[in-house]
Design a protein around this nucleic acid. Structure first.
Length: 481
RNA sequence: GGCGGCGUAGCCAAGUGGCUAAGGCAGAGGUCUGCAAAACCUUUAUUCAGCGGUUCAAAUCCGCUCGCCGCCUCCA
């Protein structure tokens, strides 16, 4: 039985979707104004594994994720500028060009991390009419008020405000910044619709004049459109718990009168060498750079060695360790596959023998306990050890087939690891592999003559080129470092 | 200032009332090998930031202290 930690109740609860086997899941997507970074990787890898595991449990998941390409305000700034517009001015292009460029970068990097695409990826800019409808409803029901082209949500009217983040309206008054936006009744009232200056580049016609939507609106509108008024799972970063998710709850529940989300799941944040990752500290890690250094699968593997609700610290030492561990795992899986020739990943569960059956069960127990991927990964290493022992003796073919099946079902399908990564052996038949094979044949002749100097020279030169040569019982093998 | 979280071996990291405190990396010793690499075996926390308390029993619950982090303004 799957248990998940619900931020709303602050405890683990049995997972019971409203209409099994269907599960509606919404995860806050990125604001596309810059390259994706390590924080995105942790968040979206975490939710990707959650989706994959729910599907392994036979749930029919509809996974919706937004792309914020409008409305993400630098709140209350005088010019009402948003981050995308700021960047567009900087690069002297249309805001939508910025949004689409970084949306492509986002998906490119998520693909490299082996994250499944959401079933529905929706851009906020495509749902302005629906947002206006929601604002109208809130005005009609008395939860919102208009003031000179701006519409605000009246948090005092919504009883449950603060139930997710544990905040009280009275406390919110204390931390008030010096300037309360013009026309707000309460400093914590949030914008549903903002008036736009004539020169503002992104604006739409609304019943309240020309303007643009408040940031929180998009998630309520798009999740309700595709998943219904009450959704099973809403995920996102812990940093969005307040105010973003709190505001989503307020506006959604005020509008529908129904509970908005059954299970709120929040992933924790990333630190770099123990420090917050931020541009101002100069320790900001963009994904393309990290992929260059470590490979995208190592980043994914490292993330999975932690828990999604724990903060995770990145350092070169930790990533090097993850790389070494993942390489070992990949190598064993590749060895198994080359030994049995053809993979038999469609082996039925009932055909699993011991101890393989036990590994699968243990893996599932970890995952069913609030997606404990760190524990699940440890099972992969148990399997690796077991497999290695068998490979070295004379293995039963069925054991290797069981191992192969499990590495595929658990490691690849559920955890989303790709054991034949970009670091794997080059394909046969390429000029490169032909050359390496030829050099190794020459080297074998030198070795037969015990000409160790020549033999080692070949190995060293290949090593310099990033090709590792390893001598085994059946001759030398090679792979890229 | 308000709210919340964390502190487990050299590093990363599970475990959150009771078997010998997972796993990975690094280290040490050994097997194998022309050497190297890889792999395998053995080994590495009487102890879970510190101090007090509750309990037959706590890394796990409570209190205090120290350190770190997040949110309260945009952030995954």
């Amino acid at each position: 039985m799957l248990h998940v930690y619900n931020t709303l109740s602050k405890q683990k609860e049995p997972f019971e979707p409203a209409n099994p086997p269907f599960v509606g899941m919404y995860v806050c997507g990125p604001t596309v104004y810059d390259d994706p970074h390590l924080g995105h990787a942790k968040s979206y890898v975490s939710f990707d594994v959650i989706v994959r595991f729910l599907r392994a449990l036979k749930y029919k998941v509809r996974y919706v994720q937004n792309i914020t390409d409008v409305g993400h305000l630098l709140e209350d700034s005088e010019d009402g500028e948003d981050r995308i517009i700021k960047k567009a001015k900087l690069e002297k292009v249309e805001p939508i060009e910025i949004a689409q460029k970084y949306e492509r970068h986002y998906f490119h990097d998520m693909d490299l991390l082996n994250n499944l695409r959401p079933d529905i990826s929706c851009r906020a800019s495509g749902y302005i009419p629906e947002m206006i409808e929601l604002v109208k409803t809130l005005l009609d029901k008395g939860y919102a008020y208009e003031n000179e082209g701006n519409v605000y949500f009246d948090i005092a009217k919504f009883e449950g405000y603060g139930k997710l983040s544990g905040r009280k309206i009275e406390d919110l008054l204390e931390g008030v910044r010096d300037t309360v936006a013009e026309g707000k009744r309460h400093s914590a009232d949030f914008a549903l619709w903002k008036k736009a200056d004539p020169q503002h580049i992104m604006q739409w016609l609304s019943p309240w004049g020309r303007g643009y939507p408040g940031w929180h609106l998009e998630c309520s509108v798009m999740s309700m459109k595709y998943l219904g008024e009450s959704i099973d799972i809403h995920g996102g970063g812990l940093d969005n718990q307040f105010p973003h998710h709190e505001c989503e709850i307020a506006q959604s529940e005020a509008a529908t009168g129904k509970p908005f989300v059954k299970y709120w799941l929040h992933n924790n944040m990333v630190t770099i060498n123990g420090q917050k990752m931020s541009k101002s500290l100069g320790n900001f890690k963009a994904l393309p750079d990290l992929f260059e250094t470590y490979g995208s699968m190592v980043i994914r593997f490292f993330i999975l060695q932690g828990h999604y609700r724990s903060p995770q610290d990145f350092s070169d030492q930790a990533l090097d360790a993850a790389k070494a561990g993942f390489t070992r795992l990949s190598k064993i899986v590749q060895d198994i596959r080359s030994r049995i020739g053809e993979t038999v990943q469609n082996l039925e569960d009932s055909e699993l023998s011991e101890p393989w059956k036990g590994y699968k069960q243990k893996f599932y127990e970890y995952m069913e306990d609030d997606f404990n991927t760190a524990g699940a990964v440890s099972v992969l290493f148990d399997m690796a050890k077991e497999s290695q022992a068998r490979l070295q003796s004379s293995p039963e073919k069925t054991d290797l087939e069981c191992a192969d099946k499990l590495f595929h079902a658990l490691g690849e399908s559920i955890l989303g690891l790709a054991f034949k990564s970009e670091n794997a052996v080059s394909g046969t038949g390429t000029a490169e592999s032909e050359l390496v094979e030829f050099l190794l044949e020459l080297r074998q002749d030198f070795r037969a003559k015990k000409d160790w100097a020549a033999s080692d020279a070949i190995r060293d030169r290949l090593g310099d080129m990033g090709i590792l040569v390893e001598d085994g019982k059946d001759g030398a093998s090679w792979r890229k470092a």
